[in-house]
Deep mutational scan, measured.
Amino acid sequence: SDEELKKRIEELVRRGNKDEARKLAENANSDEARKWWEKLEQL
């Protein structure tokens, strides 16, 4: 689900694993996940 995906992306970003988070968001084929990633990346 998008919610689970967003949690995983956020967790990866928090751990400093941005590349992994980006790949996850891009491969998810989910606009919501991509937007979430872009938002987190700004922080």
Rank of each mutant, 00 (worst) to 15 (best):
N29M: 12
R8D: 04
R15G: 13
R14M: 09
R34Y: 13
E10Y: 00
E32L: 09
K35W: 04
K39D: 14
L5W: 12
A25P: 02
N17I: 06
A28M: 15
E41M: 15
R15A: 14
I9A: 01
D2T: 13
D2G: 08
S30Y: 06
N29H: 10
W37I: 13
W37E: 07
K6E: 04
L12E: 05
S1L: 15
S1Y: 14
Q42N: 10
D2Q: 10
E38R: 00
W36A: 05
L43N: 08
A21V: 03
K35T: 07
N29S: 12
K35F: 05
N29F: 09
A25I: 15
A33N: 08
S1W: 15
V13P: 02
L5H: 03
A21H: 01
N27M: 14
N17C: 15
E20R: 04
K6S: 05
N17D: 13
L5C: 08
Q42P: 05
E10W: 03
E26S: 04
K18C: 13
A25W: 04
E3K: 10
E4R: 07
A33D: 10
D2S: 11
R34D: 10
A28V: 08
K7S: 10
K18S: 12
K23Y: 03
W36Y: 13
E32V: 09
K35S: 12
E4Y: 07
V13F: 12
E38P: 04
Q42I: 09
K23A: 13
L40E: 05
D19M: 06
R8T: 10
E41A: 14
E32I: 09
K23D: 07
N17V: 05
L5R: 03
R15D: 11
N27D: 13
D31M: 05
L24I: 08
A21L: 10
E20V: 06
A33K: 05
I9P: 01
L43F: 09
L43Q: 11
E41K: 09
L40V: 07
E41H: 08
E20Y: 01
E38F: 00
L5M: 08
E41G: 07
W36S: 04
A25S: 04
A25Q: 03
D31G: 05
L43R: 07
E3Y: 07
Q42C: 09
E10A: 06
E10Q: 06
V13A: 04
R34H: 10
A21D: 02
N27H: 08
R34L: 15
L40S: 04
R34K: 14
E32T: 09
A25V: 15
A25R: 01
G16P: 00
D31H: 05
K7Y: 02
S1E: 09
K23N: 09
E11F: 00
E10N: 05
E38K: 00
S1N: 12
A33P: 03
N17G: 05
A28D: 05
S30W: 09
L40M: 12
L40Q: 04
W37D: 04
N27L: 13
L12R: 03
R22C: 08
A21C: 05
G16N: 03
D19N: 08
K7M: 08
R8A: 10
R22W: 04
E20S: 04
K39E: 15
L5S: 02
E38A: 00
D31R: 04
R8H: 08
N27R: 09
W37A: 03
I9S: 00
K7D: 07
A33L: 15
E11H: 05
S30R: 03
S30F: 08
K18F: 15
D19P: 03
A28Q: 06
L12K: 03
E38W: 00
R14Y: 00
K6C: 15
R22V: 05
A25T: 05
L12D: 03
Q42E: 10
R34M: 15
R15P: 02
E10I: 11
R22H: 06
L24W: 00
I9F: 07
W37N: 01
E38M: 00
K7N: 09
S30A: 05
K35Y: 04
E11N: 07
E4H: 09
L24T: 04
N27S: 14
L43T: 11
Q42S: 12
G16W: 00
R8I: 12
N29P: 07
K18D: 07
R15F: 04
D2I: 15
D19F: 00
E3I: 11
D19I: 08
E4M: 10
A25Y: 04
K18L: 15
E10D: 07
A25E: 02
K39C: 12
K23M: 13
D19H: 07
E32F: 07
A28T: 08
V13S: 02
L12F: 00
D31I: 09
